[in-house]
Structures are given as structure tokens and as C-alpha cells.
Design a protein around this nucleic acid. Structure first.
Lengths: 340, 340
DNA sequence: ATGAAAGCGCTAACAT
DNA sequence: ATGTTAGCGCTTTCAT
């Protein structure tokens, strides 16, 4: 039971007094310093518990000049954050990892230039010990600027190589693309098509690269006419699928670069009277909840969203503690359902 | 351009010195205190700008014993947060409003008892100036406990009346239910059915209440056999719709208590060979992105998600500033598409 | 209108 | 192993 009324909340002094030790000793106990006698340790612990003592983060932060907070930054329009469960999945993972290590998670969406300026200012103010960026496009300078302010940065997804690179956590997009191709090939597709993600994201090029590599190795052509750029939305998937269908190109398989795109494509296919997977097999990417509930249930490449969030949070904490962080690539897996 | 390196970041003293005034005056200027000469004000502003000064939140917080942070608490499983864009919509709105007023948003999901304890502790530590709760079930004691710790609380959705009530922001669920009934009736439905939300949420009872009231007034029966409880998920919608369909009850209209439920129901209907809206008209609730992209596009009752988030954030800020907050009910509107 | 000074609650040398 | 003592950077009386 947590009791203190806010204005009477006990301080470390209260605890120390009650335990019959100095404030310094009490502080040591509470921060796990080994150089304290068992007797003192017990007394302090007991006192803290009895008083329901909770350290004041602001005071600690001021003394240590760390904030124990991590920023979760979505560099995307609010609309996309809203529509794509991808973000929620990663967010959830990050939150769990942060909570485990007693860090708070600050949630930020930056869409406007104003938002960006505010984030920089915020980072400059020493309000966060690190920032993880999602959905970074092209060579967005924001992560670099934040990092230059002395704040550790971790990216979701591989940064474009030309840029000073930050540690990142990425699904194995290349292999994911391969898996998608294999699934289509296994279905007997000979005229595959793909709707990619936005051209300025490495997730797009990596997935496409893997997809194409596998097809080529298996001797299957992928002409430009069967490659179109999508935008990771349902609406985009619908429109680009119609475009593909209207182009006169024959096709019998589709790799949609994410599940939302696939769902949109499914609708266009259905409207056109095409059966999935009989006429056109479809493979998505992500494995967000909607994949199971699509019609037909979507065969997709699962990327471990929560694990990505967890990893990023942990890396950031290590970095903030002065440690090193090495980028990791997480395994993806084909989840076979009915669409391919 | 934001420049300071973290360890050399200017403090208020630096600014004051440069402006040729005392720290106190500098502080006054920066916090908008009117009792400063124009000369001093200008000098301080200029100095702050030149130095890219950013106040240290921890120091301010320690001095004022406010945190300038708001907690966004989802009292739900991570899974649901992940699957339902409803949360992301409200979150986005809250974040925007918080940023406008220079507050930070702490994101928290509480699923386990551990999470709950941690949140209480956190609130007791004076880490947040207020907490908004989403998806509160039944008479969950958590908001009350947090409030008792001296932290202002705002709820998304009307609390059950039996409980000490907090200010809340709610869509007009009752009217929403009515609108749904009207849409169905306008389609000529005479044998409507409904899949509600979880029984322990007021959103559920209010929507159902409005739906039923309208039907009754229009002389249309709604027997118990055509009322089933859902869980606000696609899968739940699918299962309960099958259940309804299997029960032998004839029906020609469905009010699904949220869009995810409706999407699941749509699938069950399609599998059963029933046309929407010809055989069964369907109305959802929320108007999340998936509604537009459903097949057929979903007629639904829109609730202003971002506005709810904004309102809650603002109320919390007012409350934290010692003001009052009065609960608000936000308008909902029928968005006619193809499913009804 | 402005400055001096006290203090918010904690951590981290530095002594002992 | 423990206590003493400075701060961390800001706000806010209280004087002037």
C-alpha cells in the first residue's frame, strides 16, 4: 500500500532519521551501494518501507544530471502512427523494457518543423538519457542533431549507409524479402509483383533486395512494370494494386511490403474478382493483428515488434550508462496462413 | 539552431551574467513574470537566445515541486493497445496538447499487478502532475488510488456512477447508439442485433442504452437473443457474429460496438454468404482508419479521438494549476459509408 | 524593478 | 562502514 500524501511525502532525511543513520548511508542503501553494514541496510530498508518512501526523481536527476527517461520518437505524421499498429507494437516493447529498468518512456511524435525544434530543445535540456527513433526517412538529420547534443540515439531500422551511423535494431529485412519470394514461388507463382514501401526507407530497399535476389536465383523475372512504390497504408495498397491490375501486366503473386499494404491490395483484388491465393497469392510483412483477420488470413513475414522495442530501450540504457551498444538484426519468420 | 554540448550547457547564471542582471531577474523574465523592466527583459531574452539556453527541468521541478509531466495510462493488456487504433488516436491528441503547453507525456501501459504497483509508486513520487486513464473497466480502484496520492486524475469515458467520480471526457455514447439505430432503421431493418463491448465498461452500457432507446421509440423489438457481448476485438467480432448467425435468429441489421468488432462481423457475414448491406446492414463505432478500408467501407459512428486526448490533457493541466475541470461529453456523428 | 539568499531532495566526493 | 559537506540549477520569499 502506497500512502504518502503528496505534500507530506517523506524525504530521504525522514528515512535516515527513522533508521538512525545519516542521509548518506540511507542513500547508499537505496541505490544498492555495497559498502554498508547489514544492520544499517536492514534498518534503512525497514524505515523506507514503513514510510512508503519514494525517491524524488527531480532531486536525483539534479544531483546526477541524468534523467532516467528515454524518448520514444516517431518521425512520422500523427495519421500514420494512428493507422499502423506497427508503432504500438514497438512502443509496447520499449515501455516494458523501460519499466523493468525503472526508466520512464516519453512519447513524442514529430511531424512539423516545430515539433522537431521542440525535440531538439528538449534533448538539449538534458531531459532524456537517450532517444529511440522510429520510421526515419532518408537522411533525416534529426537523430544526428539530437546525438550531437550529447544524447545517445538508437534507430529502429538500418540507417542509410552514407550517413554517420547510429546503433540500430532492425528486423532482417533482406531475409524477410527472400522468405516472401520463397512463399510465392512455393505457390507456383511465375509472374510475381511487389508493392514496396516508401523509396526513402532502408526497410523498403532491403525487403525489395531480398525479394529480388531470391527470385533471380530461382530464375524468375521481376520486370519494372511489376514493381510499384507504396506508402505502407491500406489506402495506398489499394490504389497501387489497382494500378498494377490496370497496367495490363499479368501477375500471379504479390509481395506487399507491409500488412496494411497487403490488406489494401486484397480489397483491390477482390473487387477485380480475383481469388486469393488461387489467382494471385499474397504475402505481407509485419504480422500485425489485422493480418490474422484479413480475408483471407494473410501469409506474412513476422517481425518481432515488441522485441525491437525492448532491444532499443536496453541499448539506450546501456549507452546512457557509458557502455557500448552494437546494432542487432532480429530474425524474421514466415507465418503461413491462407493468402499464399 | 540548438547548440550546447550537454556538459557545457548554459545555466540561468550564465544567462543572467551575460544579460547583466541577477539570476532572479533572469528567472522572472523566463517565466513571464510581469514585474521586470523592458530593458532587462530584452537583455535576458537576447542572452538566452544567443546561448540557446534551455532550462533544466529537474532543477525547476525540484524548486517548484511540479514535474510538468502528464501520464497517459492504458489500463489494458498490451495486446489490446497494440490492436486497437483507438488508443493511438487518443494518445496522439494528448501528445499534441501536452506539447503545446510544454508538458511531457509519459506513456504507461498497466496490465499486471506489478505494473499497477509501479504506477502508484511513481505517482507517489511526485513524478507527474496528473494522470489520464484509458480503458478503465468496472470499478477499477487504480485511478482512485492515484488520486488519493494527490495526483489529479481524468478519465476517458464516464465512470460507473457508484464510484467516487472523477472528471472525465467521454464521447456521447448514448447518442451514438441512437445514431446507429437510426442508420439501421433507415435501411429498413426490422430485426436488428448488436454485439456490445465488454459488460464492465460504461461505453458499452451507454451505447447499448441509446441503441435500445431508439429502437423502442420506433417500435422495433430487440430480443435478448439478438444481443451478445463482444470484447472490442476483430476476433471477438468474428466469433460472436458466427454465434449470432448460428443461433437461428433471423436478423437484418447489426450494431457493432466498435469498428474492430464490426470488421470481424463483416468477415463472418461474408463467409456465410450474406451481403452487406443488402442482407444485413452493419454499423460500427469509432471511425478508426480500418473503417474506410473495410469491405464494404463501414458506416460508423465517429468519436473524436484526438479531441478526447486533447481535452484530457488540457483538463489535467488546469487541474494541476489549481483550477477546476468539468467533465465534457463530445459530440459523435454518423459517418455514412456503404455498410448501412 | 531588482538583488541576496534560502532551499527544493538528492548524490558524491572527502573525511574519518 | 559511516558521517559531513558541497553542490546540482532553479524558484521564491524577503529586502531594498
Amino acid at each position: 500500500m502506497v500512502t504518502p500524501l503528496r505534500d507530506t511525502a517523506p524525504t530521504l532525511d525522514t528515512v535516515a532519521e527513522r533508521a538512525g543513520v545519516s542521509r548518506a548511508t540511507a542513500s547508499r542503501v537505496l541505490s544498492g551501494d555495497p559498502r554498508v553494514s547489514d544492520r544499517a541496510r536492514e534498518a534503512v530498508r525497514a524505515a523506507a518501507a514503513e514510510l512508503s518512501y519514494v525517491p524524488r526523481q527531480a532531486a536525483r536527476s539534479l544531483a546526477t544530471s541524468r534523467s532516467d527517461a528515454l524518448a520514444f520518437v516517431v518521425a512520422e505524421s500523427g495519421e500514420k502512427f494512428f493507422a499502423d499498429p506497427f508503432f504500438a507494437g514497438v512502443l509496447r516493447g520499449a515501455q516494458v523494457a523501460a519499466a523493468e529498468r525503472r526508466r520512464q518512456l516519453l512519447f513524442v511524435v514529430v511531424s512539423s518543423d516545430d515539433d522537431r525544434a521542440r525535440l531538439e530543445e528538449y534533448a538539449a535540456g538534458g531531459h532524456v538519457d537517450g532517444a529511440m527513433f522510429l520510421s526515419v526517412h532518408g537522411d533525416d538529420p534529426l537523430p544526428g542533431r539530437v546525438n550531437r547534443l550529447g544524447v545517445p540515439v538508437v534507430l529502429a531500422g538500418r540507417p542509410p549507409s552514407r550517413r554517420a551511423s547510429f546503433p540500430f535494431v532492425s528486423p532482417d529485412n533482406f531475409t524477410g524479402g527472400r522468405l516472401a519470394a520463397q512463399a510465392l514461388l512455393a505457390r507456383g507463382c511465375r509472374r510475381p509483383a511487389t508493392i514496396t514501401g516508401p523509396r526513402d526507407m532502408t526497410a523498403t530497399s532491403d525487403r525489395f533486395g531480398g525479394f529480388q535476389a531470391e527470385l533471380t536465383e530461382q530464375g524468375v523475372e521481376l520486370p519494372d512494370a511489376r514493381v510499384v512504390e507504396g506508402d505502407f497504408t491500406i489506402g495506398g495498397g489499394y490504389r497501387t494494386m489497382r494500378q498494377l491490375l490496370g497496367s495490363g501486366e499479368e501477375l500471379d503473386g504479390l509481395f506487399a511490403a507491409n500488412d496494411l499494404t497487403a490488406v489494401g491490395a486484397l480489397r483491390a483484388l477482390r473487387e477485380r474478382g480475383l481469388r486469393v491465393p488461387e489467382d494471385v497469392a499474397v504475402v505481407g510483412f509485419d504480422d500485425v493483428p489485422i493480418a490474422v483477420d484479413a480475408d483471407p488470413p494473410l501469409t506474412t513475414v513476422r517481425q518481432p515488434l515488441e522485441a525491437m522495442g525492448r532491444q532499443m530501450a536496453r541499448m539506450l540504457i546501456d549507452l546512457a550508462d557509458g557502455g557500448q551498444a552494437t546494432s542487432v538484426t532480429l530474425d524474421v519468420a514466415l507465418v503461413p496462413r491462407d493468402s499464399a
